[in-house]
Write a protein that binds this DNA or RNA. Sequence first.
DNA 1: TCGTTGATTATCT
DNA 2: GATAATCAACGAC
Length: 206
Amino acid sequence: MAFQQKLTPDFFTRPDVVTIARDLIGKSFYSCFDGVLTGGMVVETEAYSGTSDAACHAHLGRRTKRTQIMYQQGGVAYVYLIYGIYSLFNVVTNVEGTADAVLIRALEPLEGIEEMRLRRGLPKIEPRLTAGPGLLTQALGISTQHNGTDLSGTEIWFEDRGVHIPENQIIAGPRVGVAYAGADALLPWRFSLQGNRWVSKANPKY
DNA sequence: TCGTTGATTATCT
DNA sequence: GATAATCAACGAC
């Protein structure tokens, strides 16, 4: 019975954030606000590995108002504002005291597509609907006020819909927009679904 | 089709 | 006061 099953905290509290980022490809991501359900299949993620990762906000154990949420136990939302405009959504992973997180970069729309189109202000359905970390938050109505939301609740959650992604269809590559992180920027910690048209376009080549 | 640049604000120095 | 895990508009070809 490969029906919808909400991912529980034990999925997110596993120790290897890179494995979780890869496992999230093919899972479904939903939000439900004011009775409006929107969501889609995850087709692109990036792993950020806490204090040892130069690209992570919590690098070297920085613990600030913004990053403290990443030190919580896996299964809560880390949402922050970037470039003064866009909200980026991450899932906190690992156990309390570590600062690992997975950035959700792109979705393939499944539910509430018309509502997402309206939120994005687009005249028609196109990849710009959810193909990008700053775009999918707009489409799902997620903003910084959802920072810290428990993903086992009823507002924002992940589901396993029984979709199986063959290992060889998942592409690993360097992360986007983190050139300042030096050698860590080259780590193949970005995962995407090969050939999927909803993967974000701001892609380096491989 | 490509490269360049402006938008706009919370957070950190 | 500078900068950022981005996007879209615009001008050059």
